[in-house]
Amino acid sequence: MLELRLVQGSLLKKVVDAIRDLVNDASFDCSATGFSLQAMDSSHVALVALLLRSEGFDHYRCDRNISMGMNLNNMAKMLRCAGNDDIITFKGDDGSDTVSFMFESPTQDKISDFEMKLMDIDSERLGIPEAKYQAIVRMPSTEFARICKDLGSIGDTVVISVTKEGVKFSTRGDIGSANIVCRQNTDVDKPEQATTVEMNDPVSLTFALRYMNSFTKATPLSNQVTISLSSELPVVVEYKIAEMGYVRFYLAPKIEE
């Protein structure tokens, strides 16, 4: 028996919208720790890892570990039927091939029930080691989204370079080239507007902009994004979900032939 209640139901909508661009079907794992997911995109270049900790839910009951294969577009269709202020309760049963969503309006005058079919998914789990990164950039998530969108209209790849000057995003395409430098800036009115660059070693890596743009679908989840870079590792683009957990995207770099 599984029962999760989230008063801030819109959060679940945002989570599904953040990842469904990258993966179509995914296996959600439920345990005492929380509601989690790890899924790779179909070309095995990018991976998404989601964690919503049990403490973040208003009610969390998970009698035993359970994995549920879900189609994210179908999930989005169901969640779109919830109002933005609705309370969402998610229920599942061992051995059942469906799960249910219940949406309650804040005033309790409308209650909707949706049942969604589960899917059989062969999920591969990758072991992601803890790592020390050469550089960690924290910046406003909207700024990062803007940069990826702007560069995506000029080139296909972005070179992200971190030096003591700051972080530089560069691209090159048929029409020309572009460089955007963001300097460390903590002199701001609100902490979410700050850009910080933590650098142990300078690092420069190249990534496909298509994936970066897909990661930015998670922007509504967090004011800040954290980009962790090391020359021997995939980049991690992390959106923290306040009091609950995170969505992390991993992307393997491109290398020069």
Binding site: S43, H44, A46, L47, L126, A252, K254, I255
Partner: peptide, 14 residues
Amino acid sequence: LYIQIILWTYFPNT
């Protein structure tokens, strides 16, 4: 010319 590396190069299957 760039080649795209795949994730399995870095993260082993468990």
